[in-house]
Nucleic acid binder design. Structure first.
Lengths: 219, 219
DNA sequence: GTCTATATATGGATAGAC
DNA sequence: GTCTATCCATATATAGAC
C-alpha cells in the first residue's frame, strides 16, 4: 500500500495548512464580514502568500462556505436534545448553560453566524427553513407538552427558545458592549454572573413567577 | 432678511437630498456593513449619480458616521427612563415594550448598530465606555434599589438589562431566522406574540418564580 | 449643482518560473 | 507547492465641462 501511505502523508500536510487557513479566515470573517475580509489578510494570518492560499482554496467564497459548514456542525448537532423524560426545568436550564458555554468558548463562530443572519442569511436560508425549523419544532413540541402537563408554567415554546438564543449569544456577539458597560472589574466575572442570572431568569419563567408579593396597583 | 430666507431655501433642498441619501445609505449599510456597501449602491438608491452624492457628503465614511450619530439619538435619548417612584414591574415591562417596538419599527437601525458592535465598535467604543455606561449604571442603581427594598425579587440589574436588550433586539437583528423558524403563518403575529412572551418572561423574573409546583427531584 | 470622464487604489484570481 | 509578476474588475474620489 505504498501509494496509499504516500497519499495520506500529503493529505495530512494539506490538512494542517487548510486548518491554519480556516482558523485565520474565521478570525477575519467573524470580525469584518464576508466582503470586509480580504484574502491578503487571511493569508497573512495563516503565514502564507496569497497565491499559495489560493492553491488550497480556489476562492474566498469557498473558504467562507467551508467555515459555514463547520459552524453548522457545532451549532446544530451536539446542542439541544431535550429529554422528554427528564426534569423540565433542569433540561431547559441545562440547555441555557450549554449555549452560554458556547458563547464563551466559540465567540468567533457565534459572530460569524450573526453576521450571516444580519445580512439576510443568503447562504443559510435553506438550512434555516428546513433542518433548523424541523429541530426547533420538535424541541418546541416537547416543551409544549411539558406545559400542557402542568410540569412548567404556560409558555410559548418557540419564543422561549428565541429568548434562550438571544440572551446567551448576546455575550459573544455584543461582548464589546457588555465589557464596556460592566467595566474592567465586573467584566472578569461576566460569564459566571451571566450563568447565575440566566439560569434564574429561565427558572422563574418556567415556575410561574407568582411567589413575590405584587405591589398594589394604585400608588 | 432676504439673505436668510434665500439661504434657508437652499438649505431645505439640500436637507431633502441629504435625507434621501441617508435613507438609502441606512438600507445599504444595515444589510451589507460598512465595507460591503458601495457608494454606487447608495447613489442608485437615492436616485443620484455617484459624483452628485459626493457633492453632499465628502466620503463614504462621512455618511456612515452621520448615520451612527443619528442612530445614537434614537437609541439613547428617548428610551429607558425608569421612574424610581413608579411600579417596578410596570416600569421595567414598559421598557421591554418600548424596546420591542423599536425593534419592530426601526429594524435597519438595530442592524446597523449590531453590525458596528460585532466588528468591535471601532467608532463607538468611547460612547459605550462613557455615556452608555453612565446611563446603564444609573438605571441599574434604580433597579438594585427596588430589589433591596423587596419590591422585586433579587436580580443582577446589569445582566437584566442585557437580557432585555438581547431578547428585544433579537427580533430585528435575527428576523430572517425568526421568520424561517416560525413559518409563514406564525411570522405574521411574531411581534405581538413576542410582546406577550417577553412581558411574561420579565414579570415572572421580577416576581420571583416560586408559584409553580416544583417537580420532585427523584424521577 | 449635476454631469462625463478619469485618476488612483485595492482586491480577487491567474500565469508561469522555480 | 510556493513564489513573483500581473491581469482584470471594482470602487473611492476627483477634474473639469456644462
Amino acid at each position: 500500500m505504498a501509494r496509499a501511505s504516500e497519499a495520506r502523508k500529503e493529505t495530512r500536510i494539506q490538512r494542517e495548512k487548510r486548518e491554519a487557513i480556516l482558523k485565520a479566515a474565521l478570525a477575519e470573517f467573524s470580525k469584518n464580514g464576508f466582503r470586509g475580509t480580504t484574502i491578503d489578510a487571511i493569508a497573512a494570518g495563516a503565514g502564507l502568500s496569497k497565491p499559495n492560499l489560493l492553491y488550497y482554496f480556489s476562492s474566498k467564497e469557498e473558504i467562507y462556505r467551508t467555515l459555514l459548514c463547520q459552524l453548522l456542525d457545532i451549532w446544530l448537532e451536539p446542542l439541544f436534545r431535550l429529554d422528554p423524560a427528564g426534569d423540565p426545568v433542569k433540561e431547559i436550564t441545562g440547555y441555557v448553560r450549554r449555549k452560554l458555554e458556547m458563547a464563551r468558548d466559540y465567540p468567533a463562530e457565534s459572530r460569524l453566524f450573526a453576521n450571516e443572519i444580519l445580512r439576510g442569511a443568503p447562504r443559510l436560508k435553506d438550512m434555516l427553513e428546513g433542518p433548523l425549523k424541523e429541530i426547533v419544532d420538535r424541541e418546541a413540541a416537547v416543551i409544549g407538552r411539558w406545559a400542557e402537563e402542568g410540569r412548567i408554567a404556560p409558555v410559548d415554546p418557540h419564543h422561549l427558545i428565541f429568548s434562550i438564543w438571544a440572551t446567551t449569544q448576546h455575550y459573544a456577539d455584543f461582548d464589546v458592549q457588555v465589557q464596556a458597560v460592566l467595566g474592567p472589574e465586573r467584566s472578569a466575572t461576566r460569564f459566571a454572573d451571566a450563568e447565575t442570572h440566566l439560569v434564574t431568569l429561565f427558572e422563574r419563567m418556567l415556575r410561574g413567577g407568582e411567589g413575590h408579593e405584587k405591589p398594589s396597583e394604585d400608588a
